[in-house]
């Protein structure tokens, strides 16, 4: 629970920092499918929020990370081999840094 809480607040802080100052980490993501309950967000002053800057994906790497197999046709053919079921199913992969908050519920 402590980890979910820390990661969630780290995410909120990431967003605030992003809008007011700029990207604080390219590699950060929220590593859970579910958010903590509001009532879990207590004792926040003790949290230690850390970021490592990392590096942004290049365009095709970014697309490999976020596109579902059904959209692989938008990538150069060299990358099609990565998706064994290319053109079969439709689902979303979320890796993009802010996606846990904004994209996770899209099908």
């Amino acid at each position: 629970m402590m980890r979910v809480k820390t990661d969630y607040i780290t995410g909120l802080q990431w967003v605030l920092h992003y809008y007011y100052q700029g990207v604080t980490s390219w590699s950060w993501f929220f590593p859970y499918h579910y958010a903590p309950m509001m009532s879990d967000l207590v004792d926040l002053e003790s949290l230690n929020l850390e970021y490592s800057m990392g590096k942004p994906f290049r365009p095709f790497e970014q697309l490999l990370a976020v596109l579902p197999p059904a959209s692989m046709k938008h990538l150069p053919s060299a990358f099609h081999v990565f998706s064994p079921h290319f053109l079969s199913a439709s689902c979303l992969f979320f890796f993009f840094v802010s996606s846990p908050f904004f994209l996770k519920n899209r099908t």
Binding site: S83, C91, N105, R106, T107
Partner: peptide, 29 residues
């Protein structure tokens, strides 16, 4: 294709958890 080193990133079967919501687009994928 089956030799893809990252094929687990692209599953065709995965859980859609409605998580108490009414519409599919509100679900947790």
């Amino acid at each position: 294709r089956d030799g893809s080193p990252v094929k687990d990133f692209y599953p065709i079967d995965f859980k859609i958890d409605m998580n108490g919501k009414k519409n599919e687009w509100e679900s947790v994928v």
